[in-house]
């Protein structure tokens, strides 16, 4: 049984609802979820929100279905970019585990694929993609390890949106040949989540093959999380961690810490 992840749960201000969503996700078998904070810089005075820390959100995380570990909660920032000035790498981005960008124009899409330091590029689900995905930027993105996200909640809510989602998804999958695609929910209520097996099967509608569809909810998501980690560190080679242990335990702790650093570098 592989590890399933849902990297898009919209951050809503209601805490109990959010807890409810996380609980449902754990019940469905997702072992990692990411809480998504969406920023639209073209609206005036929108600040980059401070992510809630996990301990603040709920003191006891629910146990994942079929596992004995509690669910892992990450923070994700999505920048909706309509202009090149909207995406500015700043220190505020560093509070988030995963960084995503939602380009609205072809030029920005090209830039996001080729140069932006992001983990995920979102594909429109609620409207027709205003530009055509070209092969060269997508190949560049695949080479850099950036992933494309298809969110399915809009499709569940409304049948017109479903048409747009399927159109855009098939357009994308045709160009990238099923590689580097992830599927995430984008859910705002607990009833909009779907189980990982259902989503893997839904991938067939989006034109993914069996293996690719399964990878889109499991291994590809893992790559996204790891890619997000490399952004924090020096290309994933060196990772500095503050130790909270008292100094007396240092000789015992030295070797596991070394090992940990090595595995993270890989």
């Amino acid at each position: 049984m592989s590890v399933y992840m849902d990297l898009n749960i919209i951050a809503i201000s209601d805490k109990t609802k959010l807890q409810n969503i996380i609980e449902t996700a754990a019940h469905l078998g997702y072992s990692t979820v990411a809480i998504n904070y969406v920023v639209e810089p073209q609206q005036k005075k929108q600040q980059i929100p401070k992510p809630l820390s996990v301990s603040e959100l709920c003191e006891k995380l629910p146990i994942v279905q079929g596992k004995s570990r509690p669910i892992k909660v990450l923070n994700r920032l999505t920048v909706v970019a309509t202009d090149a000035s909207h995406f500015r790498p700043s220190n505020e981005y560093k509070n988030f585990d995963i960084l995503a960008v939602f380009p609205k124009t072809e030029k920005l899409f090209h830039a996001a694929c080729m140069t932006y330091d992001v983990d995920i590029i979102c594909i429109a689900a609620t409207e027709k993609q205003p530009f055509h995905c070209k092969r060269s930027p997508i190949n560049g993105a695949i080479e850099r390890g950036v992933f494309f996200e298809i969110s399915y909640t809009a499709a569940i809510r409304d049948s017109t949106m479903k048409k747009y989602t399927i159109t855009n998804a098939i357009n994308l999958v045709d160009v990238c040949k099923g590689k580097n695609v992830i599927m995430a929910s984008g859910a705002e209520t607990a009833l909009e989540l779907r189980g990982p097996y259902d989503i893997a099967n839904l991938g067939l509608v989006f034109g993914l093959s069996d293996g690719d569809a399964k990878a889109a909810v499991s291994t590809n998501c893992r790559s996204v999380v790891l890619h997000g980690e490399t952004r924090m560190t020096a290309l994933g080679i060196i990772h500095v961690k503050k130790k909270s242990h008292p100094p007396s335990e240092q000789p015992d702790e030295a070797s596991p810490a070394l090992k940990r650093a090595k595995t993270e570098a890989l």
Binding site: Y152, I156, K162, L191, R194, D198, N201, L202, L204, V205
Partner: peptide
């Protein structure tokens, strides 16, 4: 099966 996720 692919129709099942759309049941609300």
């Amino acid at each position: 099966w692919s129709a099942l996720p759309f049941i609300t």
